[in-house]
Amino acid sequence: MSRHRGRGMASINYPIGMNLGGDPSQALVHSNPSGKFTVALSSIDLGQGMKQVTRQICAETLGIPIEDVFVDTADSDTGPHCMGSFASRGTHRAGNAVLAAAREARGVLLEAAAEELEVDPGDLETDGRGTIRVRGAPGKSITVKEAAQAGQFKQGRTIAGRGIFLVPLSPVDPETGEMSPATCYAHAAMVAEVEVDDETGVVTVVRLDSAYELGRALNPRMVEQQLVGGAWMGVSHALYETPEPYYPDPKAGGRDFVEYLMPGPGDIAPHDIAVLERPAPDGPYGGKGPGEMCANPVIPAVANAIFDAVGVRMDTLPITPEKVLRALKAQGGARPQHRAGR
């Protein structure tokens, strides 16, 4: 009786957005009298960071400090339509809508500034710190606040913008399945190292190494949050959880977090992540969306690592100790393969 180590890998891609009835999102951006901006959305922040990622897109596009933008979501009386936060669509679809709205608002802001400075709006640039200046003439400038005040109290302009991003419905061919299901794809490859105890059937994930290609990481800390959390979910899917442990027999399902097994803090493996950025031509600043995909490569990588460690193929999820022991018994014991990456 002993513990066996093994490594397995998997590589995947993931579609961004969905193909159902068209896939639109809208955004409204406007300035208060002091040049502070609000983004109104009906998109949902589930904890994934919808508010912050759209806030950064808006600030970048307007060319103003991040502190001068807040995102208001979601009130159906004030926020324009969004399909919702699912299908990894939030960053890409809502982000593009905010980008369009912020571009329009920036256009008005620069027109207001140009009128005050008596120059052409095309000669203006923003410094990202709250100042609008004439390109090539650093002394000639106006603050965003002064421009917003002049626009609203002197010139009669709404410093505001509207944005919509729509991916039209692509019909699905009944015979061939021909369709345009998504506009871009994120990618990942994962290596899992596991230890399998051939006496108890317990599988421990020892470490994870991964590479994710996400278009552009609009906020690296939030990307890390998704990828680390998602890998945990992948380990949980692979080894622990289901409300129907004897599926398709519906007996004996967990009713709470005591009976429904998930990895605890002591079960979290070190995870080294590399992020690659191949910008999506149609993404906001090239962004795609890391949200959903990050559990997916972990599950098969763990299953393949178990095979490498003890020589049994686990083709049914979750891979519980009971299933591992049954498979080892049927095989007549562990048969380490040690073929992966050596």
């Binding site: 590589s11 891609n13 061939t176 490859a189 590399a274 191949r278």
Partner: peptide, 21 residues
Amino acid sequence: HRREAKNTALVECVQVAAEKA
């Protein structure tokens, strides 16, 4: 599904994952 693959990066992800591991 009869659409051209664009903006792909699977090969590079596998290369980098192999390097890291």
